[in-house]
């Protein structure tokens, strides 16, 4: 508190002090009031008391300035109190809420996982169990049991990797070229009815390009029971396609050839493309058919009593269609800028 109140700078000093005070709580507001405006000890009333000590000609000016200071102090006090009240209701002092949040890193699952999960989810709803077989297979499981006779041109349909150093006196070992050996492994161990999906990685010894990679993923379906028909196969594939591609999907079943099914079909989906002359094109999505009796015989299932259907579809193919991806290799490059989109 300044001792000498006779000098003009005293008001200025007091104003400077007052303006520098911070008022961040109810307690500080009360302190401020007592210090500057309090009736007994307040600095401003104290100066009013001394007004009579001034020469008469200085009194009006002093009084005017002192009143202004008093008003200013009251104004600060009121503003602070209002602000404190507002803050108390809104939960604290104002913050810059436009600053970005503290984030963690973004993670992602691979688009192939997402497509495969979607397929398996749909299939589970259609009553299919899941089974996974080995990627290294015997020649018998991958080919012979599936009615690919040795030295038959059908073997050329799937360029095969053979493994070095197979066990002595045993048939060749291959990297499975399809998930169909899963059919054999299941039927070796389980009696019909069998209704199962076999997802997994398969290998083809083909030149790598935008449309083929040395490995990819398939999902195999197998349903074996009494009275299974090709008509049912069509309906199940329509259900799957509708779930994957939408209710208005159009499919086309074309006769084809796989050694392990008879009759065999390839299924195309109509892919609308406004820029194309024909308004779109047929895109092949899977192969399927009725299980060949020779396959049943290789696993001791009675082909007179049971019939069945089998389906093989490519996961990459489905993912490329769903997301408009035109180069299969990008799945295996794992560029974060690609992964981040899924």
């Amino acid at each position: 508190m300044p001792d000498d109140v006779d000098e003009r700078p005293t008001i200025d000093d007091l104003r400077e002090h007052m303006e520098a005070e911070s008022i961040e709580s109810e307690e500080e507001a009360e302190d401020f009031r007592i210090r500057y405006l309090g009736r007994n000890q307040g600095a401003i009333p104290a100066l009013f008391d001394r007004i009579g000590d001034l020469p008469p000609e200085a009194r009006p000016e002093f009084g005017r300035r002192l009143n202004a200071l008093k008003e200013r102090a009251q104004e600060r006090l009121d503003a602070a109190k209002a602000r404190l009240k507002r803050e108390a209701q809104s939960g604290g002092p104002d913050i810059d809420r436009t600053l970005p949040g503290r984030r963690g890193f973004r993670g992602s699952t691979h688009p192939l996982t997402q497509t495969l999960d979607e397929i398996l989810r749909i299939l589970q709803g259609l009553g299919f169990s899941t089974y996974e077989g080995p990627e290294i297979e015997t020649d018998w499981h991958n080919f012979t049991a599936l009615n690919f006779p040795p030295d038959h041109p059908a073997r050329d349909m799937q360029d095969t990797f053979f493994l070095k150093d197979p066990p002595e006196d045993e048939e060749p070992r291959v990297l499975r070229t399809h998930t169909s050996p899963g059919q054999i492994r299941i039927m070796e161990h389980q009696e019909p009815p069998i209704r199962v999906a076999v997802p997994g990685r398969v290998y083809r010894n083909e030149a790598i390009s935008y449309k083929s990679f040395c490995l990819f993923h398939q999902v195999e379906l197998l349903y074996v029971d009494e009275g299974v028909t090709m008509a049912q196969l069509k309906q199940v594939l329509y259900s799957l396609a509708r779930a994957l591609f939408g209710d208005d999907v159009t499919l086309r079943f074309r006769p084809s050839y796989f050694p392990f099914t008879e009759p065999s079909a390839e299924v195309d989906v109509w892919w609308a493309d406004e820029e194309s002359d024909d308004g779109g094109q047929w895109m092949e999505i899977l192969g399927c058919g009725m299980v060949h009796p020779n396959v049943f015989e290789s696993v001791d299932v009675d082909p007179e009593r049971y019939t069945g259907y089998a389906v093989g579809m490519g996961v990459e193919r489905m993912a490329m269609l769903r997301h408009g991806i035109d180069d299969i290799r990008i799945f295996y490059e794992n560029d974060v800028r690609f992964l981040d989109q899924f």
């Binding site: 899941t130 209704r195 329509y238 009759p263």
Partner: peptide, 26 residues
Amino acid sequence: VARLHGYDQIPKPQRVPVPSRTPHQP
């Protein structure tokens, strides 16, 4: 017979049977 008759002549049945066995997920 099927291929010459036309696969598109094979109808899609209204209902498909499912074995009365809960699907097994490993």
